[in-house]
């Protein structure tokens, strides 16, 4: 029995949330007295993959055939299943993401495995295999006992603090045989904003609402985000009005973020928006309305005009560097 962790790649390196998944899997391996292996799919820098060792993995299986170059949840699920079988893994860890939910689900059906998504803490192994997971869009938690012989867990950002040690993992090529059924869909085209920081990976998010008054007034928010090295997001009305692209929409029906710092500018704080940000460690609300509900959910608040405050904050950030 062993632990297998799937990692997502970004430009050939392991994503930060995936390194947390490695640390999470390695911690379970330590408790159970077994080893943790990593599966990476797609183009990668081999020395970047070896970094998984610093987070506790002993080896990395690297699947990188040309047919796996584009993200394909079905093919990735088949590769994951083959890796689970080869490594005789009984616990499989994936970072929570759209891709990982999709491939984890298909792998779970292939393996007859238990699948639990949205896990927020390390499992309690003293009596069974109990994990805490986020439910009702962050408004509550459920502790579930995972009973399957194989357990697949999708872990949320910040489920564990990933601290790099000094280990280096061995990287081995992994090329299981894949069926044609995984490749029936054809990718016609992709539209991807380049060079943008990923909202779900970002440690800091600066987000704007209707109080920003229009797409032409976004620059002060973008300036603060750049000064902080933050990703930018927005509320639902803002993406509905096409002020900002849909992939920036944070909330109940949009992206759920869990950064260390979330700065809400001109967002009133409707419950549907809060559902997308309530896993953030620290929340700052800036709003001209002192009654804005966001202040009840925030750690720090400033009542005032965003167009006065944002440039002053940007200046303060730049001066403190």
């Amino acid at each position: 029995m062993s632990i297998l962790i799937f990692v997502e790649l970004d430009n050939g390196s392991i994503k930060k949330t995936s390194l947390e998944a490695v640390a999470y899997g390695a911690e379970i391996a330590k408790t159970k007295g077994t080893t943790a292996s990593v599966l990476a799919i797609g183009n990668a820098d081999l020395s970047e993959l070896a970094i998984a060792g610093a987070y506790g993995a002993s080896k990395v299986l690297h699947a990188n055939t040309s047919e796996l170059a584009t993200e394909n949840a079905m093919a990735y699920a088949s590769v994951l299943t083959a890796a689970v079988q080869q490594e005789n893994a009984d616990v499989v860890i994936l970072p929570k993401s759209g891709l990982c939910d999709a491939m984890g689900a298909r792998a779970a059906a292939k393996l007859g495995a238990s699948i639990v998504s949205g896990v927020t803490d390390l499992p309690d192994l003293t009596d069974g295999f109990k994990v805490k997971r986020s439910i009702y869009t962050g408004k509550a938690f459920a502790t579930v006992d995972v009973k399957g012989d194989i357990k697949i867990l999708g872990i949320k950002k910040n489920a564990i603090e990933a601290v790099a040690g000094s280990g280096i993992a061995d990287v081995a090529t992994f090329s299981p045989a894949l069926g044609g059924g995984d490749f029936v869909a054809k990718v016609v085209s992709q539209e991807k904003a380049s060079g943008e920081l990923s909202l779900t990976e970002a440690d800091i998010v600066v987000s704007g609402g209707r109080g920003m008054k229009g797409p032409e007034h976004w620059q002060p928010l973008i300036d603060l985000a750049q000064a902080l090295g933050a990703a930018t997001g927005c509320s639902k009305p803002v993406s509905d009005l096409d002020w900002r692209p849909h992939h920036e929409h944070i909330g109940q029906t949009g992206i759920k973020v869990a950064p260390n710092l979330y700065i809400a500018c001109g967002i009133s704080g409707a419950i549907q928006h809060l559902a997308g940000v309530n896993s953030s460690k620290v929340i700052v609300a800036i709003n001209k309305d002192p009654e804005a509900p966001f202040f009840k959910a925030a750690d720090y608040g400033i009542v005032g005009d965003v167009f006065d405050i944002l440039p002053r904050l940007t200046k303060a950030v730049n001066e403190s560097k």
Binding site: A113, S114, I115, V116, K130, K132, I135, G138, K139, A140, F141, A142, T143, V144, D145, V146, K147, G148, N278, A285, F295, K296, A297, A298, D299, Y300, G301, I302, V303
Partner: peptide, 20 residues
């Protein structure tokens, strides 16, 4: 049965917002 519920919990209440 692949998972069973142990219990539900609510998040710890949020502290007061520090106004600047």
């Amino acid at each position: 049965e692949l998972t069973t519920l142990d219990k539900y919990t609510l998040p710890a209440p949020k502290g007061a917002c520090k106004m600047i």
